[in-house]
Computed example of a mutant assay.
Amino acid sequence: MMPGRAGIQSVEVGYAVLDALASAPDAMMLRDLAAACAMSAAKAHRYLVSFQRVGLVAQDPATSRYDLGPTARRLGLASLARLDGLAAARAAAARLCEAIGHTTALAVWSERGPLIVHCETPSCQPLTIGLRLGSVMPLSSSATGRCFSAWLPREQIAPLLARELDVRPARHAARLTTESGWAAWAAAVRARGAGAADGDLQRGLASLCHPVFDAAGRLVLGLVTLGPSTAFDGRAGGAIDKAARSAAAALSREFGGTNDGPAPPAARPARRSR
């Protein structure tokens, strides 16, 4: 509370419950949530009941676990929509979607990882995918996560990556948890110019995520393109890669930055992830 101004203490105490849910990698049991907030389970439950009534919290009836609800997501997305430059990014995503005939999306970094804040799906090729507004993408197995992991400082992503690999072990987990292994892996992603995945996150789905930088050279957005593996040309230097790379570079200029880096490699025959 700001000095000299009266507030409502119960609101400030209750915020600890929301903050704990926002900071956790997954939905939480009541006992774990109460411990994270340093309050009794009975007290935490009273706050959860009120937050459920207004949609800030939701409880899974099958597991009894609690997570942020639809009202919390709506507030977060409304805040993100007001970020400078996001309007231009949405327009760029729409143009790219029309140009390539595949779904495009925008992702920003959040306390829980890369967060999808906008999606564009072509009417000519509707695609049913597990990508929704408010989705948090895994760092190790999604193109979006690989993009953010490669261009953000290791100390920023390390805690989330460690928790993710503990819950969902990946084939390459060992090298991602060591500094040298992560450095080599991140360097390979940066050399390619984008995060890429084909079947890693969802069978039959391929995707790319190109970075967008601000004037200070910081990663501010991920420009995502995705489609069915059978139709999506996700090759480095391929048609979609070139179009998305150009769109991401234009967006970086909108933010005062640049995407100068290694030239895209020549197109190679597509390789399927196993």
Rank of each mutant, 00 (worst) to 15 (best):
I157L: 02
P262N: 10
D233K: 12
L106F: 05
A91H: 06
A34Y: 07
V224L: 13
A247D: 10
S142L: 12
G181A: 05
E164S: 04
V212F: 10
E111I: 07
A81I: 06
A173F: 04
I8Y: 12
D166A: 06
A105G: 02
L160H: 04
V167R: 04
I240A: 12
E111T: 10
A58H: 06
P61V: 01
E98A: 15
A194F: 14
T104W: 01
A44P: 11
G69L: 04
I100M: 09
L221E: 14
D200M: 14
L106T: 00
K43D: 14
F51H: 12
A42E: 15
I116D: 08
S110Q: 00
V224I: 15
A244D: 01
P122T: 09
I157F: 02
A194N: 03
P264R: 11
T121Y: 08
M39I: 15
A24W: 08
L133N: 03
P70D: 11
A78V: 09
G55A: 08
L80T: 05
L18M: 07
G7C: 07
R31D: 13
A62H: 09
R154G: 03
P169T: 08
L221Q: 15
E12I: 02
A197L: 01
A206N: 07
L165Y: 07
W182V: 06
A173R: 01
H118Y: 06
D233H: 01
L165I: 06
A72T: 07
R154P: 01
M28A: 06
L251R: 03
P228K: 03
D60V: 02
A267G: 09
G113D: 00
R112V: 04
W185C: 03
K242S: 14
G130L: 13
S141L: 09
T177V: 08
Q156H: 08
W109C: 03
R271Q: 14
L83P: 01
A27F: 06
L75R: 00
T225H: 13
G130V: 05
T103Y: 02
P25A: 07
D233V: 09
G193Q: 06
A62M: 11
L30V: 01
R74I: 11
R46S: 11
L86M: 08
D26A: 10
Q125S: 15
L96A: 11
P126G: 05
G195D: 12
D26F: 02
R95P: 08
P159N: 05
L221T: 15
C147W: 00
A42M: 15
L75T: 00
A194S: 09
T230L: 14
G256N: 07
D84P: 05
S141Q: 04
D26Y: 00
A266L: 02
A236Q: 14
G55E: 07
P159S: 05
A244V: 07
T71D: 04
Q125A: 15
D241A: 01
R271K: 11
G134T: 11
D260P: 07
D260W: 13
A38F: 03
T103K: 09
A263P: 02
L208A: 00
V212Y: 13
R190E: 05
R235V: 03
R190C: 03
T63D: 11
L77E: 06
V189P: 07
P122V: 08
A239I: 15
A94R: 14
S273Q: 11
I129R: 06
Q202V: 13
R171Y: 01
S23H: 05
